[in-house]
């Protein structure tokens, strides 16, 4: 079998196992929706300004875009990194490593599964936003760019997820380290809080350097009609590629001693 077919086969088994842990699967899906509800409720149904534009957009639609970005990041970065670390520490990865399954096929399978979960989450967020907040849904060329954004984002964050497992010493530390690496960026990158017209210079700088805001901005383009820039996707892809290269070098298939 080719690596691609082996990877797809692996998706099937990963998916089976995923849904048989209803608590984990349930919360994965509950998180973005819960945040969408909370943020929209607390921060009201007013309007917010997108940095670098003169556009005023409804707060609720803003959060549909943000939570779509958050969904992909949760599934492809946070969950993937934590889950792979747990599997590593449980010796599951070492066992797989003792078979002829190419390591790339296994990891690709995991990434594809995370992407599917992320996309499903985005669809749910968008549908919920449409029904509850009358958010606009991307169509036509915007939809195509949106799809590319999703895929580049999912792959990019998955690459980073595999990379960060290398510095996670054990499964117990995984949630703390992974969340520490992503939560501040979620706050500084227009995911949780709109930055307003003139964000502080250092906040703007953080947004430009790290991949999260580039992803959020690309998602906003799909939902809010803000300008879409391919450069955002290039930055995302570069981060993902960097992550993959680091993972290729430092990823561990065995528990760290």
């Amino acid at each position: 079998m080719s690596v691609a077919r082996l990877a797809l086969r692996q998706v099937r088994f990963t998916n089976k196992a995923f849904w048989r842990n209803p608590a984990a699967a349930g919360f994965t899906f509950a998180f973005p929706l819960m945040f969408l509800l909370i943020f929209t409720t607390i921060l009201g149904n007013g309007e917010t300004q997108i940095p670098g534009t003169n556009l005023l957009v409804p707060q609720s639609t803003f959060y549909v875009a943000s939570m779509a970005a958050f969904s992909i990041i949760t599934a492809c970065y946070t969950n993937l990194a934590i889950s792979v670390t747990f599997q590593r520490d449980a010796g599951i990865l070492k066992r797989i490593r003792g078979t002829p399954l190419p390591s790339g096929a296994y990891l690709t399978g995991r990434v594809i599964h995370a992407t599917l979960v992320g996309v499903l989450l985005v669809v749910i967020c968008a549908a919920f936003g449409r029904v509850a907040y009358d958010a606009s849904i991307p169509t036509g060329a915007t939809l195509a760019r949106f799809a590319v954004t999703l895929l580049v984002g999912a792959a990019g964050f998955a690459g980073l997820a595999l990379a960060i497992t290398a510095i996670v010493p054990n499964a117990d530390a995984a949630p703390a380290i992974v969340n520490f690496s992503i939560l501040p960026l979620l706050f500084l990158s227009e995911v949780f809080i709109p930055l307003g017209k003139h964000p502080a210079a250092w906040v703007d700088f953080v947004g430009k350097v790290f991949p999260v805001r580039h992803f959020t901005v690309a998602m906003q383009a799909a939902f809010l009609g803000t300008p879409f820039k391919w450069s955002d996707l290039v930055v995302l892809a570069a981060w993902g590629l960097g992550g993959l290269l680091l993972a290729a070098r430092f990823f561990s298939w065995e528990p760290r001693k």
């Binding site: 842990n21 010796g91 078979t99 399954l101």
Partner: peptide
């Protein structure tokens, strides 16, 4: 191996099927 694991949420048969496919 001495201390390895397999996915706890798959059944015995699914586990063997998964590995057989390699």
């Amino acid at each position: 191996l001495q201390s390895t694991g397999v996915d706890p949420y798959l059944t015995v048969r699914e586990t063997i099927e998964m590995y057989s496919g390699y």
